[in-house]
Amino acid sequence: MVSVISTVDTAHEDMIHDAQMDYYGVRLATCSSDRSVKIFDVINGQQTLVADLRGHEGPVWQVAWAHPMYGNILASCSYDKKVIVWREASGSWEKIYEHGDHDSSVNSVQWAPKEFGLVLACGSSDGSVSILTYNENQWSSSKIKEAHSIGCNAVSWAPAVVPGSLIEPPSTQRPNIAKRLVTGGCDNLVKIWKEDNGEWTEEHKLEAHSDWVRDTAWCPSIGLPQSTIASCSQDGRVIIWTCDSSTGNTWNPKILSKFNDVVWHVSWSVTGNILAVSGGDNKVSLWKESLEGQWECVSDVSKGEGVIEGQQQT
């Protein structure tokens, strides 16, 4: 059974939209409609506020930690159409980059696997996805225009390993693995994108949801012969998409469950065998696939005092 082992009093003055632990699980970043991003040290059940980051001019929807090999770096996105990249240096946090090339709310940010470098994907209500890359001490950007016709709500990177690989090969033997993204949008679609020679093209369009897709999550799937993606929607459904690399390039959907309310977020465990689902029913549930291939709820927790809620962007 899932249990609440610690409660963090963030002192945010409005609704919290996202909370993310860092790679080592010792720091927590939160963001809120109060336009702030806060960072806490979380050690031995105790939390200490170490930074209160102010730079956004609207509700902040999401935060994302970069891999620690690049330092302590955090990205945030907001209704104010901006993406801000923050970095800790000498114990203090500072803004190192601001991206303001979107025409509407930026709803989702996620860093690429470390093997691809310091690369950030950003999905916006203007329908486009920006790819921000740090190289040779400067930032550059490219854009997938009209990725989703009436807005992009979620972005998630594919692992930087070939399906079926148990371990990552040495850099001298590593194949040139293409970057891939999965996105979800207000057009009810899940889309898979592939980069080829610096250009992003639509590789697959997955249709099964009947309302806005609120989140997508590409499973780590290390060692498995198939790729797996989870998506969730305002239609109350969570869908598991699988593609077996040995039999072709077709993605097959399976409904994990039909919930009684909107499902806001899906997130895989590091090992890829547990899926966490949170939604408007005020619950977080954990799901695992049985040996028979059926998805079963192995635990759930509800918090009566608060609501687990997603973005309210327009």
Rank of each mutant, 00 (worst) to 15 (best):
V50I: 01
L189A: 09
V109Q: 11
E195R: 10
K254D: 12
E296I: 07
W157S: 05
T183M: 07
N153V: 04
M1Q: 09
K81E: 10
K303H: 10
H148G: 01
T183W: 04
V298G: 04
N137G: 03
S76N: 08
H102F: 14
W241K: 04
P175Q: 10
G280H: 06
Q62H: 03
R54S: 09
P169K: 15
L291P: 05
C77F: 14
A64Q: 07
K143P: 02
S245C: 04
D215S: 13
V262W: 15
I84K: 05
A64Y: 05
V270W: 11
N72P: 02
S231V: 03
S124D: 11
W218H: 04
S267N: 14
T48F: 03
K288V: 08
G164N: 14
V109T: 13
A154E: 10
A276Q: 01
W241D: 07
L189E: 08
T242H: 12
K38C: 02
G310S: 08
D261M: 15
V262F: 14
S233Q: 08
D18M: 02
S246R: 15
L275P: 01
R54I: 04
L189P: 03
E199I: 03
L181C: 11
D211A: 15
L166F: 11
D101S: 15
I177T: 04
S130N: 12
W139I: 10
E305C: 02
G117W: 11
T10F: 09
V190A: 05
F259S: 00
G100N: 15
P113Y: 14
S171M: 12
Y134G: 03
E136M: 03
V2I: 06
P169N: 14
W251A: 00
A160T: 09
S130F: 13
F40N: 00
N44A: 06
G164I: 04
A217Q: 06
A154L: 07
Y97T: 06
A160E: 12
S171F: 14
C243I: 01
Q62L: 05
W218G: 00
V37Y: 05
A89V: 09
K303Y: 13
Q20V: 09
G280M: 00
V213L: 03
V284L: 13
K303R: 12
H17D: 04
Q234A: 10
V85Q: 10
W193C: 04
I5N: 07
D18R: 00
I255G: 11
K38Q: 08
G123H: 09
V129N: 12
C31G: 06
N153P: 07
V284M: 04
W251E: 05
P175N: 12
A66I: 06
N176H: 08
G236T: 08
N135T: 11
G184N: 06
S130Q: 08
T183K: 11
M15F: 11
A11P: 02
A51T: 05
G304Q: 05
K82R: 14
A230F: 05
L224N: 09
